[in-house]
Design a protein around this nucleic acid. Structure first.
Lengths: 128, 128
DNA sequence: AAACAGATGTTAGATTTTCTAACATTAAAT
DNA sequence: ATTTAATGTTAGAAAATCTAACATCTGTTT
């Protein structure tokens, strides 16, 4: 009775993900194009999202609001600074790269990356 | 991070519910027609299912496998012997009705209704 | 100021998914 | 042998989603 969803199981159509995240379909597809997420596909090529995907989208949204750009977020994911995604092989950041990311964050009053802001980043708004 | 889904929120399309329950679309629609479930609808009239709906379907499936028929299951739901659904107003069963239900169960080696069989009845197969 | 780039909006046309309704089949009960 | 409950199958319509292209907006760079 007290089950947690297998968070990697693709069960949600894009329409529902739009509701859960307050993102447009355009935004979601763009973030996929930019390799920030990679939702599953049905046989008929429709995207199907897992709860982890939704979490990731909420984090992405939050980072964008903090002033990061897509490239910066991608870098964060690549380097596994963030634990959320089952990502490809992590690489190490050069000092220059790291400083560049940090500087970008500084520009926008952002706290250094804890789990994004606590207001978003997971589904506590919708799940209990 | 460790969230349970709001189990009444309609988030699943019928295709996914088919996978989760191993029921056909025909069966699912039939059970709705027979008032065993009442999934939400999108603006465009597509069914959207909650996790509670999926639980209910798994229970229905189990009861059918135990030899109950739809009418019997409906009666069970109506009389709130089962807690699962937010059903209409419960009525009391006449003794005759109750005996009739029980007899039907007896015919098929069924244990008296605990929460259906433990093998089904909730989503532990898919959720963790 | 003009040009550019990143993020998102909008639209069109094609494809997939889901819908209802009707008729068919199967197995069990009478 | 009929009848009925549950499910299968099919057809045609409507909704949801897809890709691709072009538009817009905002902030940077030259």
């Amino acid at each position: 009775m007290t089950n947690r969803v297998r968070r990697t199981m693709p069960i949600l159509p894009i329409s529902i993900v739009m509701q859960l995240t307050d993102l447009t379909a355009r935004q979601i597809r763009y973030y996929e194009e930019q390799q920030l997420i990679s939702p599953a596909r049905t046989e008929g090529n429709k995207r199907m999202f897992s709860l982890n995907d939704v979490d990731a989208l909420l984090e992405i949204k939050d980072y964008l609001e903090q002033g990061l750009n897509v490239a910066g977020i991608r870098k964060l994911y690549e380097t596994k600074v963030m634990p959320l995604n089952d990502q490809a092989e992590p690489k190490t950041l050069s000092d220059a790269e790291l400083r560049s990311l940090l500087r970008e964050e500084m520009k926008h009053q952002a706290r250094p990356f804890s789990q994004a802001s606590q207001r978003h980043g997971d589904l506590s708004r919708f799940f209990k």
